[in-house]
Amino acid sequence: MADRHSVLFVCVKNGGKSQMAAALMRHRAGESIEVHSAGTHPGDAVNGLSAQVIEESGGSMADQHPKLIDEGLLRRVDRVVVLGSEATVDPIEGMAGSIEVWSTDEPSARGIDGIERMRLIRDDIADRIDALIAELTGPAVPVVRVYEPALCCNTGVCGPELDDDLVRFTADLDHLQNQGADLQRHNLANDPTAFTADPAVADFLRVAGSAGLPLTTVDGVTVVTGRYPSRAELTRFAAITSSSKLPTGVTDLGLTASTPRGGCGPDAEAGCC
């Protein structure tokens, strides 16, 4: 499967915790994540109790065996997860991903041993696996793009008169970007390649011309034409579920009551600054 995330789980012997983590991720993530495990000082066999509790959870460690960390694999995976404090993995040159350490539960410190110890370790690792899967394969952020007509200034405050739609849109866009939205605007005057690079946008211009702009797309699909999207529409398009109320007026643009109406100083009446 193309563009899969990849994870390497590591412990000392690669017979217990790292094998359990790999088996749990294979079971819960399926083919969506490429999974590996290895040891810093591999043992001779997989731990029997580890394999047993994984079987109880629906996973499998069958056909697995301890193996040493492969440097090429270490270099290319997206995430290296070290389980426990005994193993140490140092970064190497050219690593594509990051290294993190999971300080896993150790029930033996509380006098719990045998199969019950292994079940508690499994459950602790399973919770961490679920969180990592959600992080790596969570829903993609929608890509929202707004294609504007040729503007000398896209804030709406640099001509002799305020453009209320532009002022409002600029404030909404800045706020939603701060909320994590993948939301960008492209001006035909200073970013024409953005219009030609997207076939749908280029086709739109050929049919409707610049008079049909603004044009808003979500993941490449046209959703609004001929006007700027509203705050509610932008929030929905960007899949922002919790957004604080935006201030009214033009405060997000840093304007004050003493700012000239044109927004660009005493010469604003002469035209766009």
Rank of each mutant, 00 (worst) to 15 (best):
V143E: 12
D3Y: 02
A189D: 08
I99Q: 10
E116N: 07
I99Y: 06
M118S: 04
S230D: 04
E106G: 02
E148M: 12
E34G: 02
A257Y: 05
V80E: 07
G94Q: 05
G97Y: 03
R119M: 14
T251M: 00
C158N: 11
G180Q: 05
G97T: 02
C11H: 04
Q19R: 01
S6H: 07
V81L: 07
T225V: 15
D191C: 08
G72F: 09
T256M: 03
V207Y: 05
S50E: 05
H175R: 00
R206K: 10
G111Q: 08
L74I: 06
V157A: 14
R119I: 08
S37Q: 11
H186S: 14
V167S: 11
L188C: 14
M95L: 08
F9L: 03
T137F: 03
T256E: 10
S6Q: 08
A62R: 13
T137N: 12
G43P: 07
T104I: 15
A268M: 05
E56V: 08
A126R: 08
L215T: 11
D124N: 14
T88I: 15
P66L: 10
A45C: 10
F9G: 05
M118D: 07
M61V: 11
L205G: 04
D90Q: 15
A200V: 14
A270R: 04
H175V: 00
R28N: 07
A2D: 08
D70G: 15
A131K: 11
E233W: 03
S50Y: 08
V146F: 09
V77K: 10
G159Y: 08
L136E: 09
I240E: 00
C158E: 04
H41I: 13
L83E: 06
S50P: 02
G59T: 05
S258C: 08
L83N: 05
V35I: 15
V101Y: 12
C11Q: 02
R168Q: 10
A197R: 08
R185W: 06
D78N: 06
G15L: 09
S57T: 02
E31T: 08
V157S: 12
T241H: 05
T137Q: 11
A150K: 10
P229Q: 06
V81G: 06
S103Q: 09
I69H: 07
S57H: 04
A45D: 09
N47S: 13
E71T: 15
P149Q: 15
G263T: 01
T222F: 11
F204E: 06
T259C: 13
P160I: 09
I33A: 14
A181L: 03
L188G: 13
E148V: 01
Q64K: 07
V143S: 13
D130P: 06
V143L: 08
S244W: 00
G97S: 04
I54F: 14
V250H: 01
D163M: 04
V201P: 10
N47K: 00
